[in-house]
Computed example of a mutant assay.
Amino acid sequence: MSLVLSPPALSLSPHAHRSPPLPPMSILRHLKLHHHQRRRLATLAAAAVRQDTTVWTQAPLSVVEAAAESLFHVTVDLSDSPDLAASHTRAGQYLQLRVPDVEKPSFLAIASPPSLAESGGSFEFLVKSVAGSTAELLCGLKRGDVVELSQVMGKGFDTDRIDPPEDYPTVLIFATGSGISPIRSLIESGFSAAKRSDVRLYYGARNLKRMAYQDRFKEWESSGVKIVPVLSQPDEDWKGERGYVQAAFARAKQILNPISTGAVLCGQKQMAEEVTSILVADGVLSEKILKNF
């Protein structure tokens, strides 16, 4: 009698498990691509949602006129949009502006103080006309033309950080080119300049033809702000400061007490970075250096 043996049965413990077979590389690549596509779609969807949150308000222009070489005064009438006018609460805030038949907006700082929006129902801007830009198209419009404005954006200049004035008697202000726009809003909003002992505005431009708001200098000085114009390419008759704002300030400095000094900056990036470095090196606290972005 022959005995036939069956193959031994596999004995598996209750806790044993098998690893699933590894997928081919082509499947892995497909899964990775699929994951990447999902992330990209999610990013695009989020961007679309953010874009859709912009509320556009139509309003007519009431003023478009030359302010200086390549610079224009632009005023938008908000008498029919009181909510938008009321949303401007602090100097240094900005918004987006679109012109007819052009999708791409221009970001513009509001040059007028918040009080003008409240009492006069308008926003004023200082616009630099750059070839091929939305700003150039805006500067080519005329009174009565309708533009679109977004809601007011940004926190503006947080002047609470340099108050009360007796604790921060020195405030140094720096602006270049059209960066004077939100600085005008700050000065005309009032930040107790008359109660401070040393408030200086270093305002840089290529030459006097490119320097806006010269007609306001006397008014600003009467409010307690000393104006220091700095020209990088002046004519030979110019007797004032020459070169760049940061160099003019480095020559003067005269910071009596850095801990009780505040600063406000707006304009060309290199200027802002270099002035900040000079101020911090001299002991001015970085949180007392105000910017509107």
Rank of each mutant, 00 (worst) to 15 (best):
S2K: 09
S2G: 09
L3V: 14
L3C: 09
L5Q: 11
S6N: 11
P7R: 09
A9M: 08
P14A: 15
H17F: 13
P23T: 10
P23Q: 07
S26F: 09
L28S: 10
R29V: 14
H36W: 07
Q37H: 10
R38A: 14
R38M: 09
L41A: 15
A42C: 12
A46Q: 15
A47K: 12
Q51I: 06
V63Q: 07
E65A: 14
A66T: 12
A67G: 07
A67V: 02
A67D: 03
A68S: 07
A68D: 04
E69Y: 02
L71G: 04
L78K: 03
S81H: 15
D83A: 15
L84H: 07
A85D: 11
A85F: 04
S87Y: 04
R90Y: 06
G92L: 03
G92N: 07
Q93Y: 08
L95H: 10
Q96P: 07
L97D: 08
R98K: 15
V99Y: 02
P100D: 09
D101H: 13
D101N: 14
E103T: 11
F107E: 14
I110F: 05
P113N: 09
P113L: 05
A117C: 13
A117R: 02
A117S: 15
E118C: 11
G120L: 05
G121N: 09
S122P: 05
S122H: 14
F123H: 09
L126D: 09
K128W: 02
V130C: 08
V130T: 11
V130D: 08
G132W: 01
T134L: 03
T134E: 09
C139W: 00
G140L: 06
K142N: 14
G144N: 07
V147E: 12
E148S: 15
L149G: 11
G154M: 08
K155A: 13
G156S: 09
D158H: 08
T159Q: 06
D163S: 13
D163M: 08
P164Y: 03
V171G: 06
I173F: 02
F174K: 00
F174Q: 04
A175P: 01
A175R: 00
T176V: 01
G177C: 01
S178H: 00
I183M: 02
R184P: 08
E188T: 11
G190D: 11
G190F: 05
F191E: 09
S192T: 07
S192N: 12
A194F: 05
G204S: 05
M211P: 01
M211E: 04
A212M: 01
A212D: 03
D215M: 01
E219N: 07
E221F: 00
S222T: 09
S223P: 01
S223L: 13
V228S: 01
P234H: 03
E236C: 06
D237N: 00
A247C: 03
K253D: 12
Q254F: 03
I255A: 09
S260H: 07
G262I: 01
A263R: 01
V264S: 07
L265N: 08
G267Q: 00
K269H: 10
M271R: 01
V275E: 03
S277E: 15
V280L: 04
D282E: 15
D282W: 03
S286R: 13
S286T: 12
K288V: 06
K288D: 13
F293R: 04
